[in-house]
Each structure stands twice: as structure tokens, then as C-alpha cells.
């Protein structure tokens, strides 16, 4: 761990100024991921900017009927908030499928969006990793590409035959999978003012810049996450398939929200976690469900469309079939009963 400066700006404007001032500044809120990364020398910030006293710790109703989740509200407080439980049970249940109670008590909504991959090679600074190499922290290349990649991505990866410019990391959040399905919008403030980023555009695929996890610009601070009116409270499911019953990251997860007209699907949202560098959604796949009654046969083409182009890297080959099965189960479950988490 390196020596670092610590500051606690009094305002959002000061925060943005300090953050924009140095590329080696990091915001700290709950610290549940950043501190681990610092202990392992993956993150070596010169400055920690503590934003815990900024006024983003509330959940408020929006005029259009949506809900604004403050960036500093903890995951636990969000999951157990009455309005979230009532209107967005998918989000509530998804948050509770993640981490452990201790972590959820500390972790914030904003921080959740910035948690970094669990790729083993990313965490080990002696290993080749294109995510780290950009910050002069260890050798370049992608050790996961030809290595132990059981937890790695099957969609949207960057790969080449020798792994030199590859990145097959996943983004590990559960919460973000539900936020993506719900069409949430992230509110940020930066040196150039405020802007809104739809969840689908917030995280990014590795492309040629695998070190960039998301589309925020230098100096930008997440202040809130807005949920639109539609929360799919009647038909939803989050299925998280993992190696133990709790405190394990998803190998594959599926968040589903449906609107039903009797037996017929009127609207559908399906997002996958654990399979890509961002929560994975394809509206053309969702369209295939509209107007259909639910059965494995009607859902199968949807799963095929969502997983089109998926490829394994050896240890994670099983994820393609597992994701397929999880999608079918989750959609069926959302339609048949009022949903729940598995």
C-alpha cells in the first residue's frame, strides 16, 4: 500500500475540482472494493477524496413517478427501502443476492457502479493484464485469455489469437444487472456540468481500451441513479447461479421484468450478469417475446438471440449453456408466478 493524501471536500464543486485535478485521485465512499485493491497494490491512488458527507444519502420520489437513489445510499438501505421494495422489487431482490450483509451495509449505490472486475489476473500485479498495464502496473497482455478463466466473459470480449490485446474480464455487480433491465439513468456532475447516462451506456465493453470500465469522463462524480416509472413489480425474477449459496459472484445471472396481458407478454426486459464487461441486454432479443405466451419453446429463440456470438475460453465454456438455461428458467418464472429470487 502506498502513502496517499486524504481529503473531505465540503461540496460537490470542490469534489469535482479535486477529482479533475489529478488522474491519480480516487473517490472513496464505502471503500468495500477500493481498499482491497489498494491493499493488493492494484490501485495506488495519490489521493483519496472522501465524499461521504456530500448530500447524496437519500432516496426521493421524482415528479414523473420514478425514484432517485442517492449515490451514497448504502446497498442495504436501498434494498430495504419501502418504495424500492414496492415498486422495484427486482432491484431490491437483486441487491440482496449480492455480497454479504456486512458488505451491503457499507457499499454505496454509486460505488457499486465502480466496482472492478474479479479477474484473478487483474488482482495479481505480477500477472499480465491489459487493464492494469495502462497505469504502468504490471506487464501487458491477458493472462486470463489462455489461463484459468472459469469466471470470465463469453460475450463482448476483446480477443486475439495470442491474448496480447485481449480482455475477457466481467463486471461483477448484481445490482447493475437489475438497473440495466429497469432502464435506470445515472446522474453525473463533472467539470462541464451535469449529464445523464442511461445504464446501458454507463459500462462499456473492453474494446481497444480495456482499462476503461465505464464511460464517465475525468472529474465526473456520480450523484444519483434514477429509476423510471415502470418497475415491473408484478412479474420479475433475478436468478443468480454461483458456486455457493451466498458471498460468491455470479457465474451467470439473469434479471427479468415482464408486463403481461393475461398469458401474453406485453413488454419484456432481460439483462445478464457475469457474462460480459457490462450488464448484457439486447432489445431485439426482448422484442421476440412480445405477443408470445411463455413456454420453453417461445423463450429459446430469445435466449439464442441474447447469447448470439457467445464464445468460451476453455474453463468458462459451460457458461453459454448455463446462461441459456438460466434465461429460460427466469423468464418462465417471471411469467408463471409473481417472481422471486433464486
Amino acid at each position: 500500500m502506498n502513502p496517499f493524501a486524504y481529503s473531505r471536500p465540503a461540496s460537490l464543486a470542490d469534489t469535482v475540482n479535486e477529482l479533475a485535478g489529478s488522474s491519480r485521485s480516487r473517490i472513496i465512499a464505502g471503500g468495500t472494493n477500493l481498499i482491497d485493491l489498494m491493499k493488493e497494490n492494484v490501485e495506488r491512488p495519490a489521493q483519496l477524496i472522501d465524499i461521504n458527507r456530500l448530500p447524496f444519502s437519500t432516496i426521493d420520489e421524482l415528479p414523473d413517478g420514478g425514484l432517485r437513489l442517492g449515490a451514497l445510499v448504502t446497498n442495504a438501505d436501498t434494498a430495504y427501502h419501502p418504495l424500492v421494495e414496492q415498486r422495484y422489487p427486482l432491484l431490491s431482490q437483486t441487491i440482496l443476492a449480492g455480497a454479504s450483509p456486512q458488505l451491503r451495509n457499507m457499499a454505496t449505490n454509486g460505488g457499486n457502479l465502480f466496482q472492478r472486475t474479479r479477474c484473478y489476473y487483474f488482482y495479481d500485479t505480477s500477472m499480465p493484464c491489459n487493464k492494469r498495464a495502462a497505469t504502468n502496473n504490471g506487464p501487458g497482455g491477458c493472462a486470463a485469455y489462455g489461463g484459468y478463466n472459469r469466471i470470465h466473459a463469453i460475450l463482448g470480449t476483446t480477443d486475439d489469437t495470442n491474448g496480447q490485446s485481449s480482455c475477457v474480464a466481467t463486471y461483477p455487480s448484481d445490482m447493475a444487472v437489475a438497473l440495466t433491465a429497469l432502464d435506470a439513468v445515472v446522474q453525473v456532475t463533472g467539470p462541464n456540468g451535469d449529464r445523464s447516462i442511461p445504464m446501458a451506456d454507463f459500462h462499456r465493453l473492453p474494446g481497444a481500451e480495456p482499462w476503461r470500465d465505464n464511460t464517465t469522463q475525468p472529474g465526473e462524480v456520480v450523484t444519483a441513479i434514477d429509476l423510471p416509472t415502470r418497475g415491473f413489480p408484478d412479474h420479475y425474477t433475478y436468478i443468480k447461479v454461483r458456486d455457493r449459496s451466498s458471498y460468491a459472484f455470479a457465474l451467470v445471472s439473469v434479471a427479468v421484468g415482464l408486463e403481461m396481458d393475461g398469458d401474453v407478454v406485453r413488454d419484456a426486459r432481460i439483462a445478464l450478469g457475469g457474462v460480459a464487461h457490462k450488464p448484457w441486454r439486447k432489445s431485439e432479443a426482448e422484442q421476440l417475446l412480445i405477443g408470445k405466451t411463455l413456454s420453453p419453446e417461445t423463450i429459446r429463440p430469445v435466449a439464442d438471440a441474447l447469447l448470439a456470438g457467445a464464445r468460451g475460453y476453455g474453463h468458462n465454456d459451460f457458461k453459454i449453456e448455463l446462461a441459456h438455461r438460466a434465461i429460460i428458467r427466469a423468464v418462465l418464472k417471471s411469467g408463471l408466478d409473481n417472481g422471486a429470487v433464486e
Binding site: 495479481d124 449459496s245 451466498s246
Partner: peptide
């Protein structure tokens, strides 16, 4: 590769 207790899995209470 999995030298920490998040990735080296042992049973949790659940």
C-alpha cells in the same frame, strides 16, 4: 490464482 477468501470458496452459513 484464487489466493483470497472471496475466490477460494469454503461454505458460508447458507
Amino acid at each position: 490464482m484464487n489466493q483470497n477468501l472471496a475466490e477460494y470458496h469454503i461454505p458460508v452459513c447458507a
